[in-house]
Every structure is written in C-alpha cells, then in structure tokens.
C-alpha cells in the first residue's frame, strides 16, 4: 500500500545562481518500507526532505501522504496532520532546544498532539525512552549533557511519540561514530518492525544506506536518476554516478564475516 506519493516536485532557490534544487522529482514509499536516498552533497536530497516535511514550499508538484493532499494543508489542519510524518535531523545537538531535557522533549510531542492525559505524560515519555533503549533515569537530564548517540535516540523517541507513519531521516546517523551508528541502525530496524514505520533514509554513505533500505533512489542535480530494489540496483548500477558511489566505498576485505 502506498503511503507517500510525490509527483513532479520542483524547487529553485532564488539568487544569482538560481540553483534548481528539485527538478521534477517523483517518488513513492510504501507503508513499512525504507526508501534509501543517496547522492553527492548539493544534489537536493536535503531540500527534498524539507519539502516533504513541510519546512520548505516547492514551486510545483503534489504529495499525497496517507490519503491526504499533503501540500494543500495549512494552519491548524497541517499542525494536526503533522503527526503522520516526523523527522530526525543530522546534528542531534542542534535539533533540540538548548535547555531541553530528554523527557521534556518527548513529553512536548505528546502534549502537542494530546495523545495522553497530562498526568500520564511523564510515564509515557519514560516508556518511549525505554523503547529507544535509553534508561528512563535520563528523562530529567538536559539533552546537551548526553552523548551523541543518546541524543539521537532521544530524537528518535521524540519522532515516534506522535505515532507517525513515516520518518524522514536526514543524514540521521552520519554524525555518529561507527559503533554508535551500528546500534542506532539496529534500533531503527527494530522500531520499523514493531511500529510498521516507513522511512525515507537519506545518507551519503552507500554502505549504510544499502544496509537498511528496501529500495534505493539515486539523486543528482535535483533529479532522481535511478530507483530500484537495493541489492538489484547495486549489482547492476545504471548510472555513472552510482558506479562512482559504489567505487568510493572502501572495501574491508574481511576474512570472516562479522557477527
């Protein structure tokens, strides 16, 4: 079942260079599916994320999300509908209010969408922290005092709090150390199975995108140049860009496969 269907998205940034960040982009994501989106920096993948998250307005195009005409929503209607699509940002330090606490950030999401009565909120926030593998004892800690991996887990807890259907993960694991990243990827895969979430997984590291995506879309200069099932696409890349991206992944030549 198609959860998100975007057609003909276009966006040009004004200015002397008039960069076409999105040039007739169409994509669809099924419920419970991960679509990986890869491309060099400046290819427009972050603009696409911002347009889908209704943080930027496209010049043209349409988006249907969970049966809604997503781009036509505005005001209170949009705020209410936003619970269907949540986003996790690249820099977990910048994505929280400087004075936010872990529990407070999650509780805010619950409050806004009135999902649990006020007195049950701390308990529900603690449960969400537990769900992303954090101790509920961290609830009172300022997010700024947590490690990068813990912060990103809080960001994920905050994102799943309103029970969304789709998470846009914009380079969400790119700033993490490899060992932390591996555990956050495991968490994302587990949450997908538990909650039936769909992901738009944006990354620049093909090895990471390949590991978690059912399908992969390759983006260059504002256009999606090829899309396909992850394994099939990588074993038979159609574009020179994808071939270069594949070649740029250092091979580890392991003797024995990792556990």
């Amino acid at each position: 079942m198609t959860l998100l269907d975007a057609r003909g998205l276009a966006k040009t940034y004004p200015g002397e260079r008039r960069i076409r960040a999105l040039d007739d982009v169409s994509l669809s994501i099924a419920a419970g599916e991960t679509l990986g989106l890869i491309g060099p920096s400046g290819c427009g993948k972050s603009t696409l994320a911002r347009v889908l998250a209704r943080l930027a307005t496209p010049d043209a195009g349409s988006v249907r999300l969970d049966g809604l005409d997503w781009l036509a929503l505005s005001g209170a209607g949009l705020r209410h509908a936003r619970r269907r699509l949540q986003m996790v940002f690249q820099d977990p330090a910048a994505a929280f209010h400087p004075r936010a606490t872990a529990g407070g950030a999650v509780a805010d999401a619950l409050r806004i969408h009135r999902l649990v009565p006020r007195r049950d909120r701390p308990e529900a926030a603690a449960a969400l922290l537990r769900q992303v593998g954090l101790s509920p004892d961290l609830a009172r800690r300022p997010v700024a005092t947590l490690s990068g991996g813990q912060r990103q887990r809080v960001a994920i807890a905050r994102a799943i709090a309103p029970r969304p259907r789709l998470l846009v993960l914009d380079e969400a694991v790119s700033a993490l150390d490899a060992s932390v990243r591996a555990r956050v990827l495991d968490l994302l895969v587990r949450l997908q199975a538990e909650l039936g979430l769909a992901y738009l997984f944006i990354g620049h590291d093909l090895a990471v995108v390949r590991a978690v995506s059912h399908r992969i879309a390759v983006m260059d200069a504002g256009q999606i140049i090829e899309t396909g099932p992850a394994e099939a696409l990588l074993s038979d890349p159609g574009s020179p860009l994808l071939r270069r991206l594949i070649a740029a992944v250092p091979a580890l030549h392991r003797k024995d496969p990792p556990v």
């Binding site: 943080l55 705020r79 936003r82 619970r83 699509l85 986003m87 999401a109 806004i112 905050r158």
Partner: peptide
C-alpha cells in the same frame, strides 16, 4: 533557521 525550530515545526508546535 536553527534545527530545533524546524524540529518544533515538524512536531506540530504552534
């Protein structure tokens, strides 16, 4: 323009 403001908007904050 900070990310946390974008995050609050995505969350649906007024």
């Amino acid at each position: 323009e900070a990310d946390f403001v974008a995050a609050a908007r995505v969350m649906g904050m007024h």
